[in-house]
Simulated assay, not measured.
Amino acid sequence: MIYVGGVQFLDESSSFSLSSSSQGSSLLVDVMSHPVITLASDSFKNLEEKNVSFDESDSESSTKDRYVYIFQREFAVVNPALVDFVGTDEATTCVGLVIRNRKSGMTSVAHMDSPEIVDLGISQMLLLVLQDDVDAELDVHMVGGYEDVDIKNADGVGDYAKPEGYSFPLCCKLVETLQKRRENFHIQTLFILGHNTKLDSQANTCPIFNGCLVNTSTGAILPASFNRTSRCPDEIVRRIRVSSSFEDSSWKGKLLDTYDTKTDRFIIAPCRWTMRLIEYVWELNQLTDEEILTNCSTSPSAEGPDFVNSLRRLVILEASTGSLSRTQTGHRKICILFLFVCFRNWGYLLKYPEWSKTFPRRQPRVFERTVDGHWKKC
């Protein structure tokens, strides 16, 4: 169940004869318009974004602090005794979800990218956060999911029609699921949709912030961005794993296991990719930057300056068969995902076209933290 301002939030729409999707839309709109949430969003909007970088020339961040970074479709539960900060970014139409146990400080962060992974994903996040105390008081923050369509003018029937787009269905599912569960979720930050939307110089809507960083000791949350020095360890393999997980049935509906809470190690669970994906590398290497942006993003005008460069190292391409509906495909723009690495960084997939070379005997890739705050492969 959801609490706002310390008071249980009553879902009035549940007593009306609305469809399930309409009830979810109504609940989301009502929670977002609550004065406490509006005030919190205004305060968050005025915070300075923290740039997390471990470049030697960058004095803003320090590897003396212990960080955990989460990629798309991953999650991690961190212990404040072992980790100082945990965060994620690149969430434009995705949502960074934070759940923190007020008493223990155990903090779970997930990068949600589809309504299809919300139910199981939240259960995964809560397993270690609750610590067998289902009555624990849990603080919740959401950042990302900008308004990629005009919700007020969305097509549909009724006041709470579900608009097209990617952010709104995901945000609806998240809030609706929290409300239906028995745990006590105290919504502190809902910096999503209209609260997290601005116009760029070409009058395109885009997110104000697409990432967040949580101080595990205090629970304080800041808008944040990361770069190649702080999106670690094992960035290339973890990005490959995000897309290949759609074809690996063992990960259906789940967040990707990435980090071990008890040992403070990254244990990157194995994921299979097919030779079909490798074949497309050769066919797609002529794409221009503009074509990459158009084909690879659900929000081309909203991506950060390093988006295309990251995809030049590992690009997730999607090809439509036209056979699945938006509901069936969830957050995915289209239903089949392909990997593309340009000529400058084909290296990894071409060197290891068989997934078993990356995950021998289907064993995870393990990284431990070094004394200087970096990571080394075990």
Rank of each mutant, 00 (worst) to 15 (best):
I2N: 00
V4K: 04
V7Y: 08
V7M: 08
F9R: 00
L27Y: 03
L28M: 10
P35A: 01
V36R: 06
I37G: 05
T38K: 09
A40N: 06
S43N: 09
S43I: 14
S43Y: 15
F44V: 03
E49I: 05
R66T: 12
I70A: 01
Q72T: 03
L82K: 12
V83E: 02
G87E: 02
T88N: 11
E90P: 07
C94A: 09
V95F: 05
G96D: 12
N101W: 03
K103V: 10
G105C: 01
V109H: 06
H111A: 05
D113V: 13
S114A: 02
D119W: 15
Q124C: 01
L127Y: 14
V129Y: 01
Q131T: 12
D148F: 00
A154Q: 11
P163L: 01
P163G: 03
L170N: 00
L170E: 02
K173W: 03
V175I: 12
R181D: 04
R181T: 02
R182Y: 09
N184E: 12
G194E: 09
G194K: 13
N196Q: 02
T197Y: 05
K198P: 15
Q202M: 11
A203G: 14
N204S: 15
C206V: 14
C212W: 10
V214T: 00
V214S: 01
N215W: 04
T216G: 02
G219V: 02
A220N: 12
S230A: 14
R239A: 04
V242Q: 05
S243T: 06
F246D: 02
G253Q: 14
D257E: 14
T263N: 05
R265T: 09
F266I: 14
A269I: 07
C271L: 07
W282C: 06
L284V: 08
S299F: 13
S310G: 13
R312T: 01
R313D: 01
V315Y: 00
T329Q: 11
G330V: 08
G330E: 07
C335T: 12
I336Q: 09
F338L: 12
N345I: 04
W346V: 11
L349N: 01
L350V: 07
Y352V: 05
P353E: 05
W355M: 03
P360D: 07
R369W: 05
K377N: 15
C378D: 11
C378H: 09
